[in-house]
């Protein structure tokens, strides 16, 4: 495995910015959003059928409340992971997120944070796969699922930037930024 070393100063810098991203996402996940989404692009170009995932029902304001019950263990581990990432220990931060994933594997939130850490360490394929996993798990008929889907797509947009595919990144953001109003 090629993980960056914790004592690399560049790596710390990146880790700190990653924490901001992770915190921003965590904030979004916890605070909820207020406007309706647009239709996201399909994840894999195969098959022509249309599932409910591709066409989320537009949630009402009442549905877009913060999630009532989140697993405190998962949240605690995500918090600890964010602290570790801020301190430059991306490997430790990943271990904590994987622990959260093993506790609650169907919760998209730690998968999204894990994707951000992979992005930070330059593992773009892994980052995108984590985002896609979160998307597959996000139930877009619920408010929290919709927020997770949005966070996943914005992560994919960041990955597209790194891949120097700015048009795709902008197109994803244009679709999903509307959610925040």
């Amino acid at each position: 495995m090629s993980q960056p070393q914790a004592d690399n100063p560049n790596y710390r810098k990146r880790a700190a910015s990653g924490h901001l991203i992770a915190c921003a996402i965590l904030g979004l996940l916890l605070t909820g959003c207020t406007s309706a989404p647009s239709v996201p692009p399909p994840v894999v170009e195969s098959g022509t059928q249309h599932s409910p995932k591709d066409a989320p029902a537009e949630p009402t304001d009442a549905e877009l409340k913060p999630p009532a019950a989140a697993n405190p263990a998962t949240l605690a581990l995500m918090d600890r992971s964010a602290v570790a990432a801020r301190d430059g220990d991306v490997r430790g931060a990943m271990v904590l997120l994987e622990r959260a994933i093993r506790i609650e594997p169907r919760n998209p939130a730690p998968w999204i944070d894990l994707g951000h850490l992979h992005l930070l360490s330059g593992a773009l394929v892994r980052a995108e796969q984590s985002a896609r996993k979160a998307l597959a798990l996000a139930d877009e008929s619920t408010a929290s699922g919709l927020r997770a889907a949005r966070a996943s797509w914005l992560l994919i947009a960041d990955i597209r930037d790194k891949q120097e595919r700015p048009v795709e990144a902008a197109s994803i953001r244009a679709r999903w930024d509307r959610l925040t109003g």
Partner: peptide, 30 residues
């Protein structure tokens, strides 16, 4: 294996969760 640590508890090797999407979510759901 998740990780191999040496006698001083330093990680020598880590094997993170590695996934590869193979089926579109809508087909997988069906």
């Amino acid at each position: 294996v998740i990780a191999v640590l040496d006698a001083n508890n330093l990680t020598i090797d880590g094997f993170p969760i590695a996934l590869r999407q193979t089926i579109a979510p809508n087909v997988s759901e069906q």
